[in-house]
């Protein structure tokens, strides 16, 4: 009695309710993202072509000056290059640290694998600010490392060079972003068919050869994905340089922060923001293509292997 009218309704009007339901589902999130995300990005782009008045407020007068300033002043180029250098160092170290740990958990651990996996995943989401703070109290002039070295009679005066240095930024960023590399690298190791590893060994390859010729190439998509995360996140980081690098080691995001803050030059800040955005998007596009080509290569190999 209850089902009959419903069945009839759905028989006759299959498409219109479905279309109405679709609008109901898709319009709210789409409009929200349009208003509060897409249009703000566009307004940043527009703002990069605007002038400011004497008070530093943005006025609606189109100009190319902010872009000219960006390309002529060496500060921006050199900071961008410096940021690339830091991000590249962080990425290399994060990959270098992730590979043995992920490899060990994926291939050597038998009991407690789940627990170890959670252990490497959990720090991903555990407070950024607190982890940066940890390095501040460890590396500080009156910090734990310095007092430990003096207690152990290795040094007799505090070493000034630990905190507020380039290496402090790098260590902090590597610590914060290594879990982002660990996860995809571990997943890639786990997905390698164990039979391929066995086959390589049966064919007489040593363990090093097996690792470099079989395991590593097959896990490259994961390594690239993780490396991209680390690189992009380091590029956009503006807190670690301030907290751990002091005033002399500013990265590109600090320039954006200053231009939107104390220097109050929003058009120029928008230029730097847009440049950062373009760099990141280009990078993500490139690496996703590389990953895909590896993935298809892998499936190609998989098919060959499957043709028993």
């Amino acid at each position: 009695m209850d089902t009959a009218p419903a069945a009839k309704a759905s028989d006759h009007t299959q498409t219109p309710p479905k279309r109405r339901a679709l609008l109901f589902l898709v319009l709210p999130p789409a409009l929200w993202l349009l208003c509060f995300l897409v249009v703000p990005y566009l307004s940043l782009f527009v703002q990069s072509f605007l002038a400011t008045n004497d008070l530093g407020d943005v006025v609606f007068e189109p100009t190319l000056d902010p872009w000219k300033a960006f390309f002529t002043k060496t500060l921006y180029r050199s900071t961008l290059l410096y940021t690339f250098k830091i991000a590249l160092t962080v990425t290399s170290l994060a990959v270098l640290f992730s590979v043995p740990l992920a490899y060990f958990i994926a291939f050597k651990v038998r009991r407690g694998k789940e627990l170890l996996y959670s252990l490497i995943i959990v720090p991903l989401w555990v407070s950024y600010i607190v982890r940066a703070y940890a390095w501040k109290i460890i590396l500080g002039r009156e910090g734990i490392l310095n007092s430990f070295l003096q207690w152990a009679k290795i040094t007799d005066a505090p070493v000034e060079a630990f905190l507020y240095s380039e290496w402090a930024i790098i260590i902090g960023l590597v610590h914060i972003y290594t879990p982002f590399v660990l996860m995809p690298v571990y997943t890639a190791f786990e997905q390698i068919p164990r039979s391929l590893v066995e086959a390589s060994k049966d064919l007489g390859a040593g363990r090093l050869t097996t690792f470099f010729r079989v395991v590593l190439p097959l896990s490259l998509p994961g390594i690239i994905a993780g490396g991209t995360f680390a690189f992009v996140l380091s590029l956009g980081d503006f807190l670690a340089p301030v907290l751990l690098g002091g005033t002399d080691n500013l990265m590109i995001s600090n320039v954006v922060q200053n231009l939107f803050g104390t220097s109050n030059d929003r058009p120029l800040g928008s230029v730097v923001g847009i440049v950062l955005l373009v760099v990141v998007v280009a990078l993500l596009e490139t690496t996703s293509r590389v990953e895909q080509s590896f993935a298809s290569l892998e499936s190609g190999r998989g098919r060959l292997g499957g043709a028993r």
Partner: peptide, 23 residues
Amino acid sequence: LERIVLLPLTLPGIVTGVAMLSF
């Protein structure tokens, strides 16, 4: 829409922050 959804997750937070601050 699929691509837009990924933007706040892939772009540096600072870019999203200053874009929202401007708009």
